[in-house]
């Protein structure tokens, strides 16, 4: 837990937007550099953790850290413009300064996965938390077996990280399947057409020695989990992140409380096994 600046746990780092990328309609990615170089040099996080990003005068929003911990000196976030804070964020540009608190929360136990195959399944704007793990794994490629990615969005233009999808598609050590919902394809679309759970069934990955990571809208997760079970993935080897509304990020404000857990400190990473023992309030 990093505590900065006179022990005021609510005080953010100042971050300058070094790069701003329009990913898809309403979706942007920022690469953020620490204004305080020393803080940036000392900043460490692990895959799965999140932060509180703020526009001063508008408030804070919670997003995962979308960049990989193997790439230091900056953090990246990807967000959809949907409310007050994200609208204000979306209006900013390279060179502007925002606030960032973190890293918060638990992590994917990636160091326990050495030698295992990784299957990533993501829908829409939920690729960012997995993108962090994907790059983390690809930067340590020799530690893992097969790396498979199934990613779907409503339409071709709604896919995020388009350049990276192309890069993953070109690599022969990554098995990438992209899909769009029926009607979302363009004439030159070369990927699949269909919903993520169906495409997962079609790809039919082996569950042997494999960890499944699933992030997506609730409906996608709900329909994907039975397919994973059918493929033989155990609840203990199936991971996801919860996206409960948060404010403090440090287990105090009460907002992300689900059963006896606080998603901000006990999560956001949970196994399906853990979720099955929690009230369905997420």
């Amino acid at each position: 837990m990093s505590v900065q600046n006179g022990n005021n746990v609510y005080q953010p780092y100042l971050m300058r937007i070094e790069r701003a990328i329009d990913e898809a309609p309403g979706i942007r990615t920022f690469r953020l550099r620490f204004e305080d170089e020393e803080a940036g040099a000392n900043f460490r996080f692990k895959a799965g953790q999140f932060g509180e990003y703020s526009v001063f005068g508008e408030g804070e929003s919670t997003f995962c850290i979308a960049s990989s911990p193997t790439r230091t000196g900056y953090v990246e976030c990807t967000f959809r413009r949907v409310g007050r804070v994200t609208s204000a964020l979306a209006a900013l540009d390279e060179g502007d300064v925002i606030g960032f608190r973190g890293p918060y929360g638990n992590t994917f136990p990636i160091e326990e996965w050495t030698g295992k195959n990784l299957l990533f399944i993501a829908g829409g704007i939920a690729l960012p938390p997995l993108r962090c793990v994907i790059w983390n794994a690809l930067d340590l490629r020799e530690n893992f077996g097969d790396v498979s990615i199934i990613y779907g969005a409503r339409s071709v233009e709604d896919l995020v990280y388009k350049a990276e999808l192309e890069e993953w598609g070109r690599r022969d050590d990554v098995r990438l399947t992209t899909t769009v919902d029926p009607g979302g394809e363009t004439p030159d679309w070369k990927g699949e057409v269909g919903f993520v759970p169906h495409i997962l069934e079609k790809v039919n990955p082996s569950s042997e020695n494999t960890i499944a990571l699933v992030c997506g809208p609730p409906i996608m997760i709900k329909l994907t989990l039975p397919v994973l079970a059918k493929l033989g993935f155990s609840p203990g080897d199936t991971f996801t992140t919860l996206e409960n509304r948060m404010k403090c990020g440090i287990g105090k404000c009460g907002r992300c409380n689900v059963g006896k857990y606080y998603v901000c400190v006990d999560g956001p990473v949970f196994t399906l096994e853990q979720l099955q023992n929690m009230p369905p309030e997420y």
Binding site: S54, G57, G59, E60, K252
Partner: peptide, 17 residues
């Protein structure tokens, strides 16, 4: 009861959290 919210009170040139 201890639950809380965090809100910004902003103006053009500054404000408070």
């Amino acid at each position: 009861c201890s639950c809380f919210d965090i809100q910004d009170e902003g103006a053009l040139h500054g404000g408070r959290r």
